[in-house]
Design a protein around this nucleic acid. Sequence first.
DNA 1: AAGCCGGGGAT
DNA 2: ATCCCAGGCTT
Length: 366
Amino acid sequence: MDLSHFPPIAERLIAWQKQHGRHDLPWQNTTDPYAIWVSEIMLQQTQVAAVIGYYQKFMQRFPTIASLAAASQEDVMQHWSGLGYYSRARNLHKAAQIMMAEHQGVFPRDFEAIQALPGIGRSTAAAISSFAFGLPQPILDGNVKRVFARYFLVDGWPGQPSVEKKLWQIAERMQPQTAMGTYAQALMDLGATVCVRSRPRCANCPLQEDCGALSMDRVSELPASKPRKTIPEKTVQMLVMTHGNRVLLQKRPDSGIWGGLWSLPELELGQDSQAWGKQTMGLDGHAPASLMRLTHVFTHFKLHITANHMPVAALPLQAQEPGWHWMPLDVAIDAALPVPVRKILQALAAQQHGAASAKQRQLALV
DNA sequence: AAGCCGGGGAT
DNA sequence: ATCCCAGGCTT
């Protein structure tokens, strides 16, 4: 690829960053590789605004590699609950334990060693290397892909391997050998605040004089968007079994959707709740009551959930199956749950609270 | 190369 | 309703 007719951009970007970039995010103004690592993992496929609160709580609870490595998976997952892509949390936890066992509890400084840790790919390893250690490794996240696709007129969807390969080559060619952290931050900040997806602010861009897409009037069509397919839809029934103030939850396996989180038992749509409770748990449930319906959209499918509430009067011993847990409702709501499950339990809590208040009012009248 | 893995912000 | 976000891992 011939990039010779493009002037170097690093110096302009670095100068722009010092004046117009972001400087006060919670994970900036530190060279602690642990803090930078945690932020980079949280920021994978997740916007800055969504991360800030999670980051602060996570760092307060797990301030060091050692504290994270020593924590239970349950504790780690609880601090990730709601953020999505839960393999990130499991890999973060696992990588901390690897660092304790194989790197003397110190974050490795070698680029290959960093990238070898679970959950850290080339771009994340490069970001950590630049910010924490000043290594000249190019990053290539969504922001950088957009900036380069426009500036260098790269056609095709950046998720396509052939297109991504071109973009990595550009990233390598543009990579400066000084001020690596500032340069990486400049690319991200330019993409996040100026070279945004829709209606970019080209008049404020330090690269406007020689941007390929701007000169060709192709800014709005680059980068090419992902070819979209219709996603399948699934319907499930989630059963909320309660005994007194406790609710039955099931720990999901690490692999698959919502891995490592607590969830509700799932039945097929027409499946009979009472029969299911009797067969799998040996429980006699009351007639199930419709609690709520909701639709949850994932990247690759849409899930229609019907939540039914079935109280059980007695709890025989065979109801204590491994992997299942009768959890007090107030505890369950703060556990590591998927978002729709938390919504269902909150609806149940609201309903029970309402019923309790009604009873109180009734008693007050007597 | 394509699929899997979440939840939310922006438009 | 659609796109995409400081992507990586598995098949």
